[in-house]
């Protein structure tokens, strides 16, 4: 059971109050992109053992989308942050580094 904190309404709740929305920080490739870019945008998702970044929605609450950094192996949640960002904030990265030195995820580390 994950315990997540919604960065918009401040509620700390268990995961049944939220809904997972897949991988975070996916860059959209739409009209004008190449077939392989569009394929990767749609289907090429990472499935790491360890540090992972995901989108979540507080669907039984304020209804906002946010991002969460968590560990798929230990189910530890390193932190949550608003979705209006292109990369994880430094404090989230620092929190992960403290627990998992040398971590990397896609282009972030």
């Amino acid at each position: 059971m994950l315990i997540l904190t919604c960065p918009y309404c401040g509620v700390t709740g268990e995961e049944t109050e939220f809904h997972g929305g897949g991988e975070a920080h996916v860059k959209r490739f739409g009209p004008g992109s190449s077939d392989s870019e569009f394929r990767d945008y749609l289907f090429s998702k990472v499935n790491p053992k360890g540090v992972h970044f995901e989108r979540w929605r507080h669907n039984n609450g304020c209804g906002k989308w946010f991002h969460a950094a968590r560990d798929t192996m230990t189910l530890e949640v390193y932190g949550t942050y608003p979705a209006q960002t292109f990369e994880p904030p430094q404090e989230i990265k620092d929190a992960i580094t403290a627990k998992r030195p040398g971590w990397s995820w896609r282009e972030f580390s």
Binding site: V11, G13, E17, N59, N60, G61, C62
Partner: peptide, 10 residues
Amino acid sequence: FRRTRMAQVP
């Protein structure tokens, strides 16, 4: 005030 889930419904 709290918005949440009551069994299966918001």
